[in-house]
Design a protein around this nucleic acid. Sequence first.
DNA 1: TAATTAATTGTCACTTATGGCAATAAACTA
DNA 2: TAGTTTATTGCCATAAGTGACAATTAATTA
Lengths: 199, 199
Amino acid sequence: MPRPSMKDQRSEEILDAYLTCVARFGLEGATQERIAAEAGVKRPLLRHYLGNKDQMIDALADHVISSFDLASDVIGAELAALDTPQDLVAMLFTDRGAHDPRYLLAWQALAIAVADHPHMREPLLASMQRFLTMLQNTLARIVPSAPTVQINAVAQGISALFINADSFTPLGPPAAWRAETQEAAMLLASTLTSHTSEA
Amino acid sequence: MPRPSMKDQRSEEILDAYLTCVARFGLEGATQERIAAEAGVKRPLLRHYLGNKDQMIDALADHVISSFDLASDVIGAELAALDTPQDLVAMLFTDRGAHDPRYLLAWQALAIAVADHPHMREPLLASMQRFLTMLQNTLARIVPSAPTVQINAVAQGISALFINADSFTPLGPPAAWRAETQEAAMLLASTLTSHTSEA
DNA sequence: TAATTAATTGTCACTTATGGCAATAAACTA
DNA sequence: TAGTTTATTGCCATAAGTGACAATTAATTA
């Protein structure tokens, strides 16, 4: 008997607009006016669907973190078919059709805001750790003979390079930077195959 | 005959407080109230010394960029005495007494704001390129036999890892991450000494 | 001591951002 | 068609942020 609920759909749309604004203006720069304009709705609708400002931040954090976790799982599944660390890097850096830099930019914006929202610290750390663990497990499977410390270092390094590439996107970086970043990830991966285990 | 000018000193103090706030709250979260409180002065003094909001942003950008450039030069000079890429990494990641993560956090905050302040794009890119070039030149001097593409990749990688370490500081990251990041930089450096020039 | 210049503060107007709620419109069902 | 629930909008109160300027205080020198 009630009017059909748009809650799921509208919430998604508004969260996506919120994500866009946070990636572009930072967390405190993502005002309700901007979000509403980006989503193409009136401002009171934000409150109707996502609640007040703090609730909106929590909703965004949940969205970003769960999307990040999902991406980790999806990437992990894709990497299950690969045989060399270099293939892993190639997959991460070239198969970017599905990859959206807004998520990592928003992740960083939320990380900065942890000082004011301490409860977000653990989930944010956990989501990054999940990504790292996925890389570690994949590398450990591909190169079982490699020492754990090296596996972890390579995983951390590839992750950092992956994140760094997204961080630069608002600047419109020179194409060479991206190529060099990918090549750096390749070099890191190659240290696992050419067994040079001298610290 | 006039009262002595505090302009240089006060401007420095206020810019430092501004830097602190931008690193902590992002560019749009660094309100004049917070900056004034951080600097321990009344709000109108910000305007007196640094001008209006846009002028303050420009002043901060100049400050961050010139500090970054200076750091590049200083680090470049320190690296002039080293003989191996591993020493370079050790110097960058352990000799951090003088290194202040606020600068790179503010640099990233300014980079995000380039969408609204397009004139900052080139100076920001140039300052990062200066850092990269310094690393490239140092590596090229230490390992002259290495191919340019590999030099550039290692420089880009070490730079990304260096930046990444600072990006995580607001989160209070686990100590292992920092160690792994440094180890990843070490692995990258080591690819220049063990000559494995297979892509 | 008087003059000069800058530092510092108080205060106002204007804009932007947020919270909240009442009222209306729309879709569905009994 | 009437009733019910939700979507959607308009509106207002309050707070926060910024710009601007007048007034006051302080330090220096002639």
